[in-house]
Design a protein around this nucleic acid. Structure first.
Lengths: 224, 224
DNA sequence: ACCTGAACACCGTTCAAGT
DNA sequence: ACCTGAACACCGTTCAAGT
């Protein structure tokens, strides 16, 4: 009666475990590796098994996005100035996405399609409204600010931080070499910045500056 | 001796014509439709024919990116304040990419891999250096500012402007309906902004505001 | 130089079937 | 309820061959 335990870790599948697998797979091998067939294989199961839990791949991706958005630790509303609260929210979003650089772009367009994403969006819109932005201005600015968080991750100079060890070092060296080989007469500033464009020495200051730029920009859009 | 003209428009293939085809195909049917096989078919040719002109798909995409980046009309350097010149460059980038919303994300990561992209990057880095940014700060800020231009396009509320007519209207209505159906108690600000989040009435002011936010943000990063 | 044809290893997905 | 197996219409790409 007891299902034969073959010694392998083959458990019963569930949406949650599949989503787990999808995230670790993408983090480890990149977005291209995140296919139904690879994922099924990772779970020791037929590709078609996944279709019982998700009726198409898009559903899986929605679920992945929701999981990531659920990781955003929204700060409680306070009496602090709106710009300060906005910064805290942006940082919370950033912190949730930073461990998953290849998936950040996936979560973003699904913000308005998921429960935790909507909570996030509502908070941002509320803050901007309180700051005096009109509905339309707030919508556009809010969309942009959240998107810019993903951008910050994707635009970080150098290869993704998910890449580790020798593989990452090699990528950095390759990039630096290709930039260094350019004509100094034609691209002097690029050459001077070759190192800084090939790798980012301190993520934390990089992200802090990015957030700062956006918050101050938003502040200056509304002439206090 | 003269090649028989079959009456069809079947010309000899070239990198340029293939790139042309790729851009119009992507603009018309989206990024997913941009496959080697579809593209070959569009040119009345075997898929393998393209491999004579590009040794893999990545090469094709590089060429597409280069073409788009070549469309950036870089303004001549002037005596104007750096922030003003920066804004002009960002606007030039934006103007080149706006007609190709689905391809904007493709051009961006190839800026440092193409001649026109490098010219652009060098100008941005030069301006930021002149403004007093250190090399590292300038690299990070410059990368982010250019990326943010693509973001602005991608994050524009509503479906892509490349979509036209009834198809677009239907998408807008669907989005508005789904947002409008939410609980007003839980997501009051999202509901209030349902219209503004479903479609963007005036692109020009939207983009102008986005650029303004970024330029002022960059300005305020350096306390003049 | 420029293109075709057959083949390979992959995709997502449907549909009928097993337990 | 949960999963398998065979099949279909797609991918990118290699390799040998035609003109």
């Amino acid at each position: 009666m007891v299902p034969k335990s073959t010694g392998t870790t083959r458990e019963r599948l569930s949406r949650d475990t599949v989503v787990d697998g999808a995230i670790t797979l993408a983090d480890r091998e990149g977005l291209d590796a995140l296919t139904i067939r690879r994922l099924a294989q990772e779970h020791g199961v037929t590709p078609m098994a996944l279709y019982w839990h998700f009726h198409e791949k898009e559903d899986l991706l929605d679920a992945v996005a929701e999981r990531l958005l659920n990781g955003v630790r929204l700060p409680e509303p306070t009496d602090a100035p709106w710009a300060e609260q906005l910064r805290a929210i942006l940082v919370a979003y950033l912190d949730a996405m930073r461990p998953h650089p290849v998936l950040a772009g996936l979560a973003l367009p699904r913000v308005l399609k998921s429960e935790p994403g909507l909570r996030l969006a509502d908070r941002v819109l509320g803050l901007l409204a309180a700051a005096g932005f009109g509905t339309e201005e707030a919508s556009q600015t809010g969309s942009f600010l959240l998107s810019a968080m993903s951008t910050l991750i994707t635009a970080e100079p150098g290869p993704h931080k998910a890449l580790r060890g020798e593989e990452r070092d090699a990528a950095v060296r390759a990039k630096r070499a290709s930039l260094g080989a350019l004509s100094p007469a034609r691209f002097p500033h690029v050459i001077a910045a070759a190192d800084a464009l090939s790798d980012c020495p301190d993520d934390d200051v990089y992200y802090a500056r990015g957030v700062e730029l956006l918050v101050r920009g938003a502040q200056n859009l509304r002439p206090a």
